[in-house]
């Protein structure tokens, strides 16, 4: 059994890590992780609703 991690995945927007588990040349399991967190939902909480577009368009 081999486990391969590709981190960072490039040519995308954002940060991504992919791990795959390989048995006899066949992928038996895989995990994707988004490795960056900003907490946009927490920042939006309690704000003037008219500002929501300005913040969410920058996700």
């Amino acid at each position: 059994m081999t486990r391969i991690a590709i981190d960072p995945i490039t040519r995308i927007e954002g940060h991504l890590r992919i791990e795959v588990q390989i048995e006899d040349g066949v992928v038996t399991d895989a995990w994707a992780s988004s490795t960056m967190f900003r907490g946009i939902e927490l920042i939006l909480k309690g704000r003037d609703p008219r500002e929501a577009w300005a913040i969410t368009q920058r996700i």
């Binding site: 590709i6 981190d7 960072p8 995945i9 490039t10 040519r11 995308i12 927007e13």
Partner: peptide
């Protein structure tokens, strides 16, 4: 990261 061809360890 967004424009390079290599990824993972090679990057």
């Amino acid at each position: 990261e967004t424009i390079m061809a290599a990824s993972g360890k090679r990057a």
